[in-house]
Write a protein that binds this DNA or RNA. Sequence first.
RNA 1: GCGCCUGUAGCCUAAUGGACAAGGCAUCUGACUUCGGAUCAGAAGAUUACAGGUUCGACUCCUGUCAGGCGCGCCA
Length: 574
Amino acid sequence: MITTLEQFLSAWMQDAFCKALPGVDADWSTVAVVATTSAEFGDYQCNHAMGLAKTLKKAPRQIAEAVISQVSPHDAVEKVTLAGPGFINITIKSVWLAGQVTGLGLDARMGVPQVGQGKTVILDYSSPNVAKPMHIGHIRSTVIGNALDRMHRFLGYRVLSDNHLGDWGTQFGIMIMGYRHFADPKILDTEPVEELERVYVKSYERSKQDEAWLQQARQELVKLQAGDPENRKLWQQFVELSLSEFDHIYKRLDVKFDLIRGESFYNDRLAGVVQSLTEKGIVRESDGATVAFLDDEKLPPCIVKKSDGGFNYATTDLATIQSRVEEFHPDKIIYVTDERQQNHFKQVFAVARKMGCTTKLEHVWFGLMRLPEGTFSTRQGNVIKLEKYLDEAESRALAVVKETSPGMPEEHQRNIARAAGIGGVKYADLSQNPQSLVTFTWEKALALDGNSAPYLQYAYARIASVQDKYRDQFPATKLEDFPILLGEPIERVLAIMILRFPETVMRAAESYKPSVLADYLYELSSAYSTFYQNVPFLKAPEGLRESRVNLCVVVARILRQGLNLLGIETPDRI
RNA sequence: GCGCCUGUAGCCUAAUGGACAAGGCAUCUGACUUCGGAUCAGAAGAUUACAGGUUCGACUCCUGUCAGGCGCGCCA
């Protein structure tokens, strides 16, 4: 079993606590180390002694001292010191560190353990509505969900990514009416989803003024849901048109789903779910509707069957859980949606648990995106289409490429612009806490300098270039024959950061925060840039030269793997 | 009215209850005729919305206030 440096040091400290405080009844597994905030305090610190002071009625420094006296010697540890009110600071031996970095560089997984072996996770993300173009609001669920998807896979989980399309709502009655009366076949050919949205909006407005129109739309919906062949065919067409357009965007974003099952997929189960809820006494009638009242009084009651006999969103989600559990036996189902659905999922999860569902259900929500002047709304016409957003990102990146690499063939320029532009868009969403409210500005979303995707890609490309130059200049030397030496302070900083990769990936996945990984990769690139700019390597004497190039190679591998986990490309030239 | 979330330099963002709050943008200084300047070295910029409380220690936890966002039984 591979353990991370942090896990290893924590276990090592637990042992010392146990020995230093015999007879104390405590759960030593909570003893942990964390990376220090500053190099002057060593590499890792343990703060546990201070927390114990009160219960043990001893001075924290005294406890820490006792612990330090009980640590068992280890090759990895240079020294353990007491500082401040009771911090235990640990400094790692550089020789050991160098060996670990070499080993990690040779490991295909870069030290990341497969903690998810044998476990199945279903990731429900993106989930756009059929017959509406994807807009800028869809990017967060797609990008965050996909990063969680990639990280879980890398950690050894069996992941099933599922795009739970909104393909079965009440909007289809209005949709069908709009299509029949307003659709322009020519536009439908070139811009199908745009056209579908246009006729939907037109039909929707008509329905608000024209009672007969609305009645007719309801009729069409009933016919559709009863399996009327003609309406069914129309619906099928809407779904196919939308899917092919979504596909185009998913290709640009390099997002793939294992399953694309819309709400319609679970249609046959809805009545059964309500029946089973009724039999179990979880629901009762209220104002003509069938409703589950939940134990948590702060949660509104959950309607599973409307007074008109129809089912709704909650019913579908319950049926979806049921179906997924039966078919895939997941250990966990993770939903990635915006913050507005928090209550909805709390309700659904509560009802599912009452039904006996033991699968872990997680709702990962993120803050809404808005404009400086207010929210996006179709009515105000300020919605930014996703396609346009990606185009803009690529064209801004292309302008930078043309300026920095004017001699490069056009095709290469475009490839780099795509990697930097799309990478920049993803990084903008992944590098910050997903739960914060985001105010959209082009300038912010498409920044290409400072803490941005191109900064990380640039660091990677420079290493690729160093490797090429090294091979040209020293074609006969075998890099593998040379050990990594850690002489300069910045080399040591890099080495420690490299060893933190495994624990960072695990923390990012466990907390559902890709930003943890993005932050780490930025810090690694930043440390690398300092190294690159201030320490010679190709010009260094033999031995030192190989050591430094080897260090570069390990950094490059981590950047490549780490950015891949975020869904960001790493071109060799940028 | 009730519930959930957010509030950190001019702007954008970090910080599993730990050491002097960390970066980026913008501003100002510098970087060898250089292993790639989408970079690096440095300067300046903070009463962490406000008031209490818990703690050896609070941006972080609790209470209250203010400001903003979102949600509150048949939309998804």
